[in-house]
Structure formats: C-alpha cells, structure tokens
Design a protein around this nucleic acid. Structure first.
Lengths: 201, 201
DNA sequence: GTCTATATGACGATAGAC
DNA sequence: GTCTATCGTCATATAGAC
C-alpha cells in the first residue's frame, strides 16, 4: 500500500472522469450536480477540488489534448526508424481516431465542448491545442515534402479535414454498436490517404 | 407590397435565425434571453411563437436538415442526365460542404446540438436526419455498385467520415480569412474521392 | 403580437459543522 | 475532505395589460 495516491487525488480523478462524460454528453452548460452524483459526492464538495465550473472545464479540455497527444506520439514513436514519413502520418491518423473513439473520454468531451466555452477559456485552450495541431501538421508537411502527397494538396486544409472527419465520429459512432472502432480507424486512414474512388485501371 | 409575409411570420423567422446562431455557439442549454435579444423582442414574447425551448430546438434541428438537403438536392438535380453516379456523388459532397460553410447557419447549429437534445427530441430528429443520410448513402451506394468506389469501402462509414470532415469545417474555417469556401469544398471532394497520397507511378 | 410583471423553481457558490 | 444548510441569482413560463 505504499505510494498510493492521496484520497484527495482519487476524488479529484473521479470528478474529472465524470465531468468528461457529462460535459461530453450535455455540453458546457451541463449541471454540476450531474457531475457530482456519479463522482459520489455532493455538489458543494466539488468546490474543495475546483474553484468553479470553468476551472473544471479548463482541466477537461487540457486533458483532452494531452491524452490524445500522448497516445498519438507513443504510437508514432513506436515505429521502427525505417518508417517513412507517410508511415508515420498513417500511424498518427489511426492513433488519433482510436484516442477519440475508445481511448479517452476526455478527447471526446474536448471535441464537443471546445467551441462552447467562454472566450477566455477558449483562447487559452486553442493556444494549447494549436501545439498539437502543429505536431500533426508537421507530419503532413514531412510527407508532403517527401513527395508522398499530391503536389496540389494544401497541408493545412488537409490536416483540418482529416482531424474533422475523426472528431466528428463522436457524433455518430456507437461504442455499443456492431462496427468495431478499429474498423472506423482503418477506414479513416484509407479514405484520407487513398480516397474511396476506384483508381482508373 | 402584395403577398408580404405577416408580421408574425417575420418575427418567427428572426427568432429562428437568432436561435440557430446562439444554439450553435452556446449549445442546447443556451439562455433564451440571449436568443430573444438579437431577435428584438422580450423573452416572454418568445412564447407566442413557440411552446417552449424544446419546441424551438426542434424547429432549428429540422431546418438544419431541410436547408442542407434542399441545397444538395438542387445541385445534384441540376446535373445533366448524362452525369455518372460518381459525378452525382461529387456534386453532393461539394454542395453539402458549401451548405455548411456558407449557405445555412441552421446546418451548423444542427450539427452541434443534435447530440445534446433530450432523448425524445433527439430520437425524432435522428429519424428525420436519417432520411437525408439515406439520400447521401444512396449516392455512395450507387457509385459503389457501379464500380466507381473501391470494393472494400463500407458505404455507411465512408458517408459518415465525409459528412464529418465537412461538418467540422465550422470549427476552423474563417469566413473572413484568406481561404475561399469553394477551395475548401474542392479539397474535401478531392480528398474524399482520391485521397491525399501520391499514387504509385 | 408584443409588452411588463411575476410565480415558481433551479442552479451555482459559500459558510460552517463534523 | 465531505456534508448540510442556505443565500443570492437567474431562467422558464404564465397572466394580463396594451
């Protein structure tokens, strides 16, 4: 029992987990009591751990970026050094899809409430998120420079369209449905890189 | 001045326009006073035109589907009868992109609050939206049947990924920026059908 | 049709007991 | 650390004036 996280830290984590699910489902204006209840505490007790609603939202948004980024980077870095820039991009797209679909409820919540937060929080978050966007953008850029992408592709627009297709899966993907998340991720990779059209023979 | 819409109809339209913007920005739980104000009326006056918040939400969701669908269908139907199934799909993707980007704030609002509405409204809306999804799905299916798409493409997943990439443009596209909406739409069509990868020579 | 005024009830946040 | 109690604020919806 050595090294166990403090009671406070464990409660804080339960609150954040609940907040990710509830904010993701109901939006930024979700009621705090709906977060406190699944976390197993009373509404008033939230204020021992967080200053107010926006403090809680800020943390969920930050974790949304960080958990996704950590997952994507670990997958990309796990590739052998012989991997090409297009291999790395492929791995990143798949990892991002999996992060949003199944790995992190924070990524899911982030996708759905980032645009709803008040201006101050939104700006702070966008600055943080942009650093991750730059990371993905650099992978697209490298593949572009190496001639793996069509010359006329605009790396910025392509990056945004790819991340958009993946973020949007939160709106229709049913985790309890019949389509495995891995299939969606594979489809996203394939569609992004090769398109869905049958190439001329 | 003949045939002018009644005062009531014009006010109702101002309310709906404001509701689309506010619900789209703040989410389903946005305050009604924030809708009444830009519509130029008092909060209480909303209730002459709509039964309650959910009645208003329901109408915004419906218009989100209908305005997009009408725009897409008119573009597809404008094609010459000699157009192939892949031509029709291409036109639909482009028209959907333009509807979301510049034609209809309702399409934007719909995308962002559909997942937040209470179960009853959500179910009703999903049934309505599914009919539009079926329309797009039929275009994908026809192209698939005609051998224009790779055999292994799942028409449903592909449809959702395409619509997602387009819907998400609302999160990053800047109508006052340097990138024309038409360019984004063209990029989306190209990426969807042909991918961004350079095909093997 | 739209306004003002209001009842009713919720929610966020604080203070103090334990 | 968490609870209970409570204050102040705000939003929804209604009623009746104009």
């Amino acid at each position: 029992m050595v090294e166990k996280r403090s009671k406070s830290e464990r409660t804080r984590e339960r609150i954040l987990d609940a907040a990710a699910v509830v904010f993701g489902g109901q939006g930024y204006l979700a009621r705090l009591v709906d977060i406190a209840e699944p976390a197993g505490i009373q509404t008033g007790s939230l204020y021992y751990h967080f200053k107010n609603r926006d403090d809680l939202v800020r943390e969920v948004l930050r974790l949304g970026v960080d958990t996704t980024w950590a997952h994507v980077r670990s997958e990309v870095d796990a590739l052998p050094s012989s991997a090409s820039s297009i291999d790395r991009l492929r791995a990143a797209i798949r990892a991002h899809a999996m992060a949003v679909l199944v790995v992190s409820p924070y990524a899911w919540a982030r996708a759905r409430i980032a645009g709803q937060a008040p201006a101050a929080i939104g700006a702070e978050h966008r600055a943080h998120h942009a650093r991750y966007g730059d990371y993905i953008g650099s992978l697209v850029h490298d593949a572009h420079s190496d001639g793996h992408l069509r010359a006329e592709v605009d790396p910025y627009v392509a990056t945004m369209l790819v991340l958009g297709a993946l973020s949007w899966t939160t709106e229709w993907f049913d985790a309890n449905g019949t389509i495995p998340a891995g299939d969606v991720a594979d489809h996203a990779v394939r569609m992004t890189l090769d398109g869905i059209a049958q190439p001329p023979a």
